[in-house]
Nucleic acid binder design. Structure first.
Lengths: 84, 84
DNA sequence: CAGTTATTTAGATATTTATCTAAATAACTA
DNA sequence: TAGTTATTTAGATAAATATCTAAATAACTG
């Protein structure tokens, strides 16, 4: 859960997650949406991957990122038990 | 949402939330549960308050903390929309 | 009132983090 | 193969954060 909360504790990363909810995107397409350098976006993607919130697949020159929502199940349950 | 994610991005604070789920507790009782100084716990409680995840009420010498789960509604919905 | 107890505030410090530029790696294309 | 494009890695830096000790504040108690 630690890496998941860490991943979500950043506005940019949450926006990336929201983008990937709509459709898979490669690193460059994601970076275009932000006024942040590509290396920084790459770093954010890495943190999202560490949390298993996104997966990546090399497609030729590009690296395509996808959202993995299954990992949110644990978070959902944690919140629900708090609400009893 | 920013302050909420920030509040939850810490093991100690999540544990405090879990403690308060069971019952209201004063600052000292909470601090007893951790190997962390009282000022540090006080600081964590402040961050939880900023996120509106807990409320506090002065009771004589003591300050009693309670969990506020209503604020989790937004988080829950955010996660659910990701899962579509 | 003086002393004790509960909690927070202040100030310091070490660690983590978000960001950048420059360079490296990898894959495509003429 | 040489050049171009896509992405990541490396290294640096400024800001945020978690923690501590010491001091301040507030409330109870004899």
């Amino acid at each position: 859960m630690n890496s998941l909360f860490k991943a979500l504790n950043d506005q940019t990363r949450r926006q990336i997650v929201e983008l990937l909810k709509e459709k898979d995107m490669n690193a460059g397409e994601i970076a275009e949406r932000f006024n942040i350098s590509k290396p920084s976006i790459s770093h954010h993607l890495d943190i999202l991957k560490q949390a298993d919130l996104v997966t990546s697949e090399k497609k030729g020159q590009f690296v395509e990122y996808s959202l993995n929502t299954t990992i949110l199940e644990d978070l959902l349950n944690w919140i629900l038990t708090l609400k009893k």
